[in-house]
């Protein structure tokens, strides 16, 4: 048996019928083909499936899809929707913060949420914000560098635009 679900993702509204035990992760990937959200552990331990719900990063494997009704969901695909990379994406690319890339979308979304709240974080704040996003490849060094560099770029762009 399926239940009706109205889901708002990346600014679009989808009317779906889903099984009640489907997680938001499964619906994003299987129904909406938003495969940038990765399936890593399904226990909220790894952060590969991070999406933003009303701007807050959560592990989408732990949220029932039906529970997401009424909320604004943002996935990695939204960040470069205009065809241009977000400064965070650019910094991750240019600074070697991406190896296998499986953690990358979640990592970038967690960093994005951090920078929304705190545009000039310290290194310690970056670490605290990303602690739920595991990376097995990079040793995190270049990820921290990339987030700090993107923050700087965004902040100076902000100043410039004023």
């Amino acid at each position: 048996m399926k239940y009706p679900l109205t889901l708002k993702v990346n600014g679009e509204t989808y009317r779906l019928e889903v099984k009640p035990h489907r997680s938001l992760l499964e619906v994003l990937r299987d129904e909406l083909d938003l495969t940038g959200t990765n399936d890593g552990c399904r226990t909220g331990n790894c952060g590969a499936c991070t999406v933003l719900v009303d701007g807050a990063p959560i592990p989408s494997c732990l949220m029932l899809a039906l529970d997401a009704e009424g909320h604004e969901i943002t996935t990695i695909e939204a960040l470069s929707a205009g065809g241009e990379l977000h400064p965070l994406q650019r910094a991750f690319v240019q600074r070697g913060a991406i190896q296998c890339g499986y953690c990358t979308p979640g990592m970038i979304l967690s960093a994005y949420a951090l920078l929304q709240e705190n545009p000039r974080p310290t290194e310690a704040e970056v670490r605290r914000a990303l602690v739920g996003n595991l990376c097995r490849c990079t040793g995190y060094v270049k990820i921290i560098e990339a987030v700090l560099a993107a923050a700087e770029e965004m902040a100076s762009a902000d100043v410039g635009s004023r």
């Binding site: 009640p20 399904r42 226990t43 909220g44 494997c61 732990l62 029932l64 529970d67």
Partner: peptide, 26 residues
Amino acid sequence: PLAGGTDLVTKARYGHLRPRVIVNLK
């Protein structure tokens, strides 16, 4: 009852719990 789901959804996923009905409190 379902609150945050961090525990319930994980347990249901791996069969440690077999809920027949979930009542979302949110």
